[in-house]
């Protein structure tokens, strides 16, 4: 057991995968001698050489398409999109080929590849560097979508992603890169794909979060505890496959649920979760399932991002609206009146 940052854990996962499996290749923009703009690939070219970890021309569709061909040819590419919004040129390759090749060929070809995407905001980044793009991928059948919130999960989920027989979109919450946590590289404790984690047990309401909003949920739960509210926090870990069982079992126990995502809310992952909870937990619910999300706006300039990002206060406001006092939700009543 050691303490490391998420960035260090990801770097260790790539290093160990390169060591253990010669089919693993790491490539993308600036991932070579520079070690990536976030240093996630630091030292890999030096240790494994240009054949295993290399810089590509600056063209994202090309990076993904090259990985498709290499995976068809027996390799296990782990590629980096430098930033969330810079992955959009590759979207056709991802949606039409990465996600579909197994299906198109009736399982005769598969694409064991990982697309790493630093995503979301909270780091003062300028436009096109802070998008929460997870819903685009989660909405595309054939892709697994993973997002760690702790250093230990970052290591193990990335190892699992590289070992997986199917393509994985590995979304790294960039504002958590430097957050530290206990990691157990030797002795695995982390669960695998498709398993959410209950990070904090509670009786009064369930907070469902993933990626960058997991620390927000934990902070809100701490604050609520001081006010005598006992909140449970569920970290999804993998958006696809989705762990209905853990979420449902938690909400059936607490009877209340707030879903938290950093992304804009409309048609987002949180909407899917809210719908699933409502479908499966209707008779256990004492209040509507609420969502706490970013606003439906293009990602704001750094000076205003704190107004956009869901924080513990916004979560606690939502918890207050969970009809503990059997009062109507004034927010929605106001909306109807206007």
């Amino acid at each position: 057991m050691t303490t490391s940052s998420m960035a260090q854990a990801l770097n260790a996962a790539l290093r160990d995968a390169l060591r253990e499996d010669e089919r693993v290749l790491v490539f993308g923009e600036d991932v070579g001698p520079l070690g990536g703009v976030f240093r996630i690939t630091d030292g890999l070219t030096k240790e494994f050489g240009e054949e295993r970890c290399f810089d590509t021309p600056l063209a994202e569709a090309g990076i993904v398409g090259l990985a498709v061909g290499l995976a068809m040819g027996g390799f296990r590419p782990v590629i980096e999109m430098q930033f969330d919004a810079f992955a959009y040129p590759a979207f056709e390759q991802i949606a039409s080929h990465v996600a579909k090749l197994r299906n198109r060929t009736r399982g005769r070809l598969s694409l064991p590849m990982v697309i790493r995407i630093p995503y979301a905001g909270g780091i003062g980044g300028v436009e096109h560097h802070c998008d929460s793009s997870e819903a685009y991928y989660a909405h595309t059948p054939g892709l697994k979508v993973v997002t760690p919130a702790t250093a230990d999960d970052a290591y193990w989920l990335l190892r699992d992603a590289i070992a997986d027989p199917d393509p994985v979109i590995f979304m790294e919450p960039k504002r958590l890169y430097w957050s530290k946590g206990e990691t157990s590289v030797e002795d695995r404790r982390a669960a695998g794909f498709g398993r959410a984690a209950v990070l904090r047990e509670g009786r009064d309401a369930t907070l469902v979060a993933y990626g960058p909003t997991v620390p927000v949920a934990l902070e809100a739960a701490e604050a609520a505890a001081r006010d005598g509210r006992d909140l449970e926090v569920v970290d999804l870990r993998t958006i696809v496959p989705f762990d209905d069982a853990t979420v449902v079992s938690s909400v059936r126990k607490t009877g209340r649920c707030v879903v938290i995502q950093e992304a804009q809310g409309f048609a987002g992952v949180g909407a899917e979760i809210a719908a699933r909870v409502q479908e499966r937990c209707f008779h256990s619910l004492a209040a509507p399932v609420l969502r706490v999300t970013g606003f439906d706006i293009p990602y704001p300039p750094p000076i205003l991002e704190h107004s956009h990002l869901p924080d513990a206060d916004r979560v606690l406001d939502a918890v207050d609206r969970l009809q503990f006092d059997d009062e109507p939700d004034l927010l929605y009543l106001a909306g109807e009146a206007s």
């Binding site: 569709a61 398409g65 061909g69 290499l70 068809m72 040819g73 390799f75 390759q93």
Partner: peptide, 15 residues
């Protein structure tokens, strides 16, 4: 879209 896959496959054969 297949042209870049072809490049990847060609690189795989070389490797």
């Amino acid at each position: 879209t297949q042209t870049i896959h072809a490049v990847g496959m060609a690189d795989a054969l070389r490797r």
